[in-house]
Design a protein around this nucleic acid. Structure first.
Lengths: 212, 212
DNA sequence: ATTCAACCGTACCGTACGTTACGGTTCGGC
DNA sequence: GCCGAACCGTAACGTACGGTACGGTTGAAT
């Protein structure tokens, strides 16, 4: 597979097997185990993906292609619509970073990010943090255009929103703490983050009252 | 070494060698390389630290014992003193999580956090995220006691401050992005985080004007 | 001077994994 | 029905590493 090609159905099945094993075994994933789980030969793995790193890279892209959340349209943008969009984004982001597959992929990417070439880390960043940023910035700027938000630097503003949403959750999960996020907790957390975000960047009329 | 003992000077030299190699080689650290770098025998390594995991655990504790920042006293607590304390905390925390040694240790801990027993991840969390929380909470509560801060849940409040300080920096660094944080940038970032924090939790007189 | 414990350097063992090679099988095209 | 490509299952190779064993050396206590 070249870096741009879409994996065939058979190849997708292999990549799903990789995801399964990554969740189960963590970085102790072996090519033999992948071949056995996917009922394919190791020779095929190497023909399709080049080497172990290529297989993992393709797995990252495959998983990323599955979590693209719905787009946010900038139509009928009043305050509550913007708040809803941001809340949905935050909730989606929280459930992604706390999903077992995302955690497993981030772990192997981080574990291998020590010494170059650091292919996995770059791919994860491009498909995770930066992809979400590019999808959200138009929403923030649309909110600013209609006077609902006040800020200068879109990138900086997004980073603050990112911090308010993720807080210490991602690092704690990556380090193995067993945090269970139920759907309603995720929604409440997302709501809190958005409320705080509007307290910082929202239009000044109707000052928010954060704190609990 | 038992889990509680203080390493001897010779042992500290070994642990420093581990830190060096961890920064250089990442998770590809081998016992042979440690022995060679530290000019000691592998037999001694195993006698002192039990096994590879024990060596890494002791290294985490050793590094953590070196980054304890100065305590914050709650005397003469006016608004600017509290802001300074929080800013110093934030700046210290940013420089710690962006240091090469901390990054290397977090990477190996995260890489091994996939499958139990996850000793390293727990140790890193206890000495990092949770230790900093326990040291900062008294400051927040002292600020609340004198009416400078308004909040209900100390833990929740700290987590928000954590998010405002770290934002996406830690994850991006862990994934291998080459972000250089100069001291003045760290200080400016810390200042921004504290300003935003006071906008959310500060006393209502003198409303802050965040955004840049 | 002797003893003894700690330690260094190195050789060694078992194992596990990435990668390659090969024989057998399936299946679409002719 | 035949051919060739793609693929499966497995065996094999080379290497690298964690962990152990052992002889030699130092240095302090007696």
């Amino acid at each position: 597979m070249s870096a741009e090609a879409i994996p065939s159905e058979r190849q997708q099945a292999v990549l799903d097997a990789v995801l399964e094993l990554l969740v189960e075994k963590g970085d102790a994933l072996t090519m033999t185990a992948v071949a056995r789980r996917a009922s394919c030969s190791k020779e095929t793995l190497y023909k399709w993906f080049g080497d172990r790193d290529g297989l993992l890279s393709e797995t990252v892209r495959w998983q990323a292609s599955q979590v693209r959340a719905g787009n946010f349209d900038a139509q009928h943008l009043d305050s509550s619509a913007l708040r809803d969009s941001l809340r949905d984004f935050a909730a989606n982001w929280l459930s992604v970073i706390s999903s077992r597959t995302s955690l497993a992929l981030n772990r192997v990417a981080i574990g291998g990010a020590g010494s170059p070439p650091n292919t996995l880390g770059a791919i994860v960043l491009a498909n995770g943090r930066f992809a979400i940023g590019e999808r959200l910035k138009p929403v923030l700027e649309a909110g600013r255009a209609v006077g609902l938000l006040h800020f200068d630097d879109t990138e900086e503003t997004f980073r603050t929103l990112f911090g308010l949403v993720a807080r210490d959750v991602q690092v704690r999960l990556l380090l193995g703490e067993a945090i269970e996020l139920k759907p309603d907790e995720i929604l409440a957390d997302a709501q809190r983050a958005v409320t705080q975000f509007f307290a910082l960047y929202g239009a000044r009329e109707n000052p928010a009252k954060p704190g609990h």
